[in-house]
């Protein structure tokens, strides 16, 4: 029980009319700090559901989820939101940038929500992140003026800007061509190696799985090792 993420016999049922669908069934996973973990499995196997639990966007039906020592089961929306803001970074399959904000402002978004950094420190931090993802020149551009790869870089910078304990990525390369996808995974791997950031991502792509330091296979809502 020393992992930064601890899932213990986690089951999630989704109501579907009068019935309910079991998305994951008694999943137990322990992920340590600094790992670069891929969750792989066929479509509908429960990858996204597992990431939802880890990302504090939902709570399990049974079992426990512990994130950086905090058990999420009995938390209300407000506390879960705080956890997401301060401990977790998200990278989405569809990038999910805010269209009305430019690259710089998208990266600044979580910092403004946190409100802990001074204006000056915030600026320095955002610029640092822009540099890390190689988008210093594009800082003033809106998402619709950026390529898919550039958008995902902005998303990565946004996920990392708050120094989260874990960064979650749900199929981060699915909407990218393979070269760009590879580049994104390389960027994530570099950040993991150089800065010790814990990454957990789901994927279908064997090439992406290959880059992982740890692979969790899921099928039909269960972990198959």
């Amino acid at each position: 029980m020393s992992g930064i993420v601890e899932l213990t016999k986690v089951t999630k049922d989704y109501p579907l009319g009068k019935l309910s669908v079991r998305a994951i069934d008694a999943v137990s996973i322990s992920i340590g700090k600094g790992e670069f973990t891929a969750i792989a499995g066929p479509s509908g196997s429960g990858k996204t559901t597992i990431l939802n639990m880890i990302g504090c966007m939902d709570v399990p039906t049974t079992g426990t989820v512990s994130i950086d020592g905090t058990i999420t089961n009995n938390l209300y929306d407000h506390a879960l939101t705080e956890l997401r803001l301060n401990r977790i970074g998200f990278i989405f399959q569809s990038f999910n940038l805010i269209n009305v904000l430019d690259a710089y402002q998208n990266i600044e978004f979580p910092l403004l929500l946190q409100g802990t950094l001074s204006g000056k420190a915030r600026k320095a931090r955002v610029n640092e992140m822009l540099e890390k993802v190689g988008l210093t020149k594009q800082s003033g551009q809106r998402p619709n003026e950026l390529s898919g790869g550039q958008r995902q870089r902005v998303a990565i910078a946004r996920a990392l800007v708050t120094n989260p304990a874990i960064v979650l990525a749900d199929e981060p390369t699915a909407n990218l061509d393979s070269t760009t996808g590879t580049a994104i995974v390389e960027l994530m791997r570099d950040l993991n190696k150089n800065e010790g950031i814990t990454f957990i991502f789901s994927t279908h792509d064997p090439k992406v799985m290959d880059r992982a330091t740890r692979l969790v296979m899921v099928a039909d809502g269960r972990v198959v090792e």
């Binding site: 929306d77 805010i98 979580p110």
Partner: peptide
């Protein structure tokens, strides 16, 4: 989608 993203990123309801 936009609202969900903001919520996921840590914006309170």
């Amino acid at each position: 989608a936009e609202i969900g993203t903001m919520r996921a990123l840590g914006a309170q309801a």
